[in-house]
Design a protein around this nucleic acid. Structure first.
Lengths: 111, 111
DNA sequence: ACGACAATTCTAGGAAAATCGAAATATCAA
DNA sequence: TTGATATTTCGATTTTCCTAGAATTGTCGT
């Protein structure tokens, strides 16, 4: 579960979520840092740290190709995170996704 | 999208994720703070801050009943977050959820 | 080997978050 | 109204995160 904490934490930051979504749209090849930088506009060192955070927690993969390093979504891990949310974490919700049942929370204390 | 950032961020902390999962299992009634505290074991003031964070970002609802304040999952909002992950954010994955397709990222540079 | 380019690591300052004891607020019961 | 219980707010400390310039590493072309 600690892995999930780190992943949620990685996505819980404006710039990093933006980067993540960008790479989702980039497809399996991903994008090199230069390309990402062109789109999100931030200093290289800052971007590098964000990419590192996303990679360390398993959301992205990185591989070098010549002078470029390509970052791409790690689909296996990402799928696991989603599964965690829908099945493990939100077991109850799983059945009612989208329905959002009305709660009835009036008179019930246990004393 | 900022709402989602806050929500991911809220879940990106060990204790808060634990609280969240606890409340998922607690069902629509939720639990009062005392009950939660008995299970997660942390000082009241710390717990209170975590509950506040989870509530402010829309993941929980709170309502008073006598001396107790019950916290429960906000299913509508939680469902929205999951939908964001599966549909909006991970559009590509949406089709292949659970399959975790093998990536082929070996020899493909664009230079 | 050298110069240019891609990206990371180093370093350090500032901002934000986590923590928790103590004091405050709210509700109930007698 | 007093005392007990439930929870939050206040205040202060510590830790963790974000940011970004400068220095560094790795790779290519010539």
């Amino acid at each position: 579960m600690n892995r999930y904490v780190e992943q949620f934490n990685a996505l819980g930051q404006k710039d990093r979520l933006q980067i993540f979504r960008l790479l989702v749209r980039a497809g399996p090849q991903g994008n090199c840092v230069e390309e990402i930088k062109r789109r999100v506009r931030m200093p290289g060192s800052t971007l590098s740290h964000h990419l590192d955070a996303l990679t360390r927690c398993g959301l992205l993969t990185a591989h070098r190709s010549g002078r470029f390093i390509y970052y791409a979504i790690d689909w296996a891990r990402t799928a696991k995170l989603i599964r965690f949310m829908t099945e493990d974490c939100c077991a109850d919700l799983h059945a009612t996704l989208g329905a959002a049942p009305a709660r009835s929370l009036s008179a019930n204390h246990r004393t």
